[in-house]
Design a protein around this nucleic acid. Structure first.
Lengths: 225, 225
DNA sequence: CGACCATTTGATATGGATCAAGCGATGTGG
DNA sequence: CCACATCGCTTGATCCATATCAAATGGTCG
């Protein structure tokens, strides 16, 4: 089911500079040489349990991390948008697998290089720690999501996406409903119904199924808190 | 509702040595001087949003971290048993609050001391990173818990506690049902009923409400995976 | 003994899952 | 260029796990 990947060895200077400027806080880390790679939609980037020899930064596209439970259900850990770093592990195994949601371009960075550099350069060490801490914060928020009602989960998700890909009040959802459902711990039907409901309530507009306009963000936020 | 705390300045050598031996992996970190403090049952150790000037290690007793949601519900982040480190933040604010579940003795360590030491000593930096990574792994497991059925959650919880406080197949639960419920995202009634059901099925025994004997761990594990 | 708190048990309600069908875009072969 | 298969999404009907509301039980401490 997963497709083959293509590798490119470009790594243009211009691209690097642009990235660095928009991502100050991880600048130190990504200053490392890394190879840009392209992954087609639904390509696996790494699998659960594989050695975590690399970490990754999204140059363009969207990536999800996921885990298949014993009963076959799938839980999505996170979505990663342009600029986000993923796949960084403290242990040396990936605890989730990662797939490209859309055709994506990803910077691949050797973990061992960073880890050994961190042993000498405390700034790098600090960066690694910060990145893991950021991931921790993300996952903690995710836990809070999972104990809420369906409507709260969906609204939180939309607000999160809106915050992360800032383009006014219209959010482009790169992922299918099934991914959203598996992220929120709901079924695809419940996600769909909830969106319809929010639309009927005038809280959002759905020009297309993948584009959502937040009509009253303040109200939405309050609705949930 | 929260009680006052008492402070002690003891810090016996014998105690330290015993701890260090049972906690190799964080030995580097806790080698730092820290003040042991006592907290009575239900005492707040720190509050959500407070500056994270200290981190903590449980010497004896049990601690929970929690967060109150907008609608008044409470989510428990984790339970910390003897030897566990908690309250370590990458940012400088506590994202959860922490309370002693039972009368507890806790080693209090100044964060700034560690952070500045980490800037010079890469082993310490590594320790900080590892501790945060361990927390991350714990929270990720927690997410997987929250999408399971009530029975699976309860069984997972019992197995987790049994692994962490190894004393054969009998687990002593230091926390009340309400804490378990708020950890598992269930109601107290559902937790209670589920335990009763497991007992009727012969999967566990409940000599007292706070003591659980796992009758068939292998089966329990398989039951859930 | 009696008050209080934690826990269990019982009866009922409900949010979201499940099962099933319809719908709208997109693409493909005749 | 149209018929038709496919895929992602929505909508509908029903069911069930867990929440909610309510009361009983049991253990602890003054």
């Amino acid at each position: 089911m997963l497709m083959r990947t293509t590798i490119e060895q470009d790594g243009s200077r211009a691209g690097r500079a642009a990235r660095a400027s928009s991502l100050r806080s991880v600048a130190g880390v990504i200053a490392m040489t890394g190879a840009p790679m392209n992954f087609a939609r639904n390509c696996e980037i790494y699998g659960e349990g594989e050695p975590a020899d690399y970490l990754y930064q999204v140059i363009s596209g969207t990536v999800r991390t996921s885990k298949i439970l014993a009963d076959g259900r799938r839980q999505i850990g996170s979505f990663y948008l342009t600029g986000d770093v993923f796949g960084l592990e403290v242990d040396d195994e990936h605890t989730f697998s990662a797939e490209a949601i859309t055709d994506s371009r990803v910077l691949v960075i050797k973990r061992s290089a960073l880890v050994s550099l961190a042993a000498r350069d405390s700034d790098v060490a600090r960066q690694l720690w910060t990145l893991t801490g950021r991931e921790l914060a993300r996952v903690q928020d995710h836990i809070l999501l999972l104990v809420k009602t369906a409507q709260e989960r969906v609204v939180d998700f939309l607000l999160e996406m809106a915050d992360r890909a800032p383009s006014g009040d219209t959010v482009e959802l790169p992922m299918p409903r099934q991914d959203i459902a598996d992220y929120l711990g709901l079924t695809i039907e419940t996600v769909s119904r909830t969106l319809t409901m929010l639309e009927n309530d005038g809280a959002i507009a759905l020009p297309t199924s993948r584009r959502v306009t937040l009509r009253k963000r303040a109200a939405l936020g309050r609705l949930n808190a």
